[in-house]
């Protein structure tokens, strides 16, 4: 295979860790860094959720809550009020999904702090998240408005139909590209900064991690869940 001049073997690319073949299919399947990182993130969230469930079951109304329970209550209350503020009376139907989405994206984005390659820096992951939002929006629109959901595409005047159609399909594309672009640019920049001084890299990337992973990651998780809520609310509002 020809080595490329532009794309040298940088640490921020997706790497194949183990490749295998399924008999009858002429394609190299591989387990790559995204799969491993996503599995670790999912396991972390699962374990935290189980611990939280056990803690909440054991909790007594008369006891003083411990540190962990306080944090869990803070997170649940914060996300609950965020969904409530946008969706109003429909909040109960969507609070579970939006909370899951927010926690998954935020843990994925800050996975770069723990030496993993963030799963959201893979377009396969963010496109899937964007398509889930697209299906959610369309399903709720059809459920609420029936035929009007489709006639709304011709709304102001019939010849605007192509533009309205593109507007509908741009939703998952722009959502997924926004998340992917932000996390990927952070990952690329961190990779370049780590390569900058080679063996003399001491401590200074940690300051940049605070911006590219923590700040950017939290903002993007907020924006993704916020926009999902806005799009869904747009369809089901009276």
């Amino acid at each position: 295979m020809m080595t490329s001049l532009v794309a040298c073997d940088n640490s921020f690319m997706i790497k194949s860790l183990y490749s295998f073949r399924i008999p009858g299919i002429d394609y190299d399947f591989s387990i790559n860094t995204t799969h491993v990182a996503m599995l670790l993130v999912s396991l972390f969230i699962l374990i935290m959720a189980i611990i939280a469930r056990i803690k909440i079951n054991k909790a007594n109304a008369s006891d003083t809550p411990g540190f962990f329970q306080n944090v869990i209550e803070l997170i649940v209350e914060m996300l609950g009020s965020m969904v409530d503020g946008i969706m109003g009376k429909n909040a109960n139907k969507f609070v579970n999904y939006i909370t899951t989405l927010f926690i998954f994206i935020i843990i994925s984005n800050i996975a770069g702090l723990f030496g993993l390659r963030p799963p959201t820096a893979d377009y396969g992951v963010t496109l899937a998240l964007g398509l889930i939002t697209f299906v959610l929006v369309q399903f709720n629109g059809i459920k609420k408005n029936r035929g009007k959901h489709f006639t709304a595409l011709f709304q102001p005047i019939w010849f605007l139909f192509p533009i309205n159609l593109i507007g509908e399909f741009a939703v998952p594309l722009s959502l997924s590209l926004r998340l992917f672009g932000n996390v990927m640019s952070g990952t690329v920049l961190m990779g370049l900064i780590y390569d900058l001084l080679g063996p003399y890299t001491v401590a200074y990337p940690s300051v940049l991690h605070a911006y590219f992973d923590l700040f950017s990651g939290c903002i993007q998780a907020y924006v993704f869940s916020m926009l999902t809520m806005v799009y869904v609310n747009d369809k089901i509002a009276d």
């Binding site: 722009s174 590209l177 926004r178 672009g181 903002i219 907020y222 924006v223 926009l227």
Partner: peptide, 14 residues
């Protein structure tokens, strides 16, 4: 402001 900024950022990310 953050929501608007994130939407404005999209073209740059393209």
């Amino acid at each position: 402001m953050l929501l608007g900024q994130a939407v404005a950022e999209t073209t740059g990310l393209y």
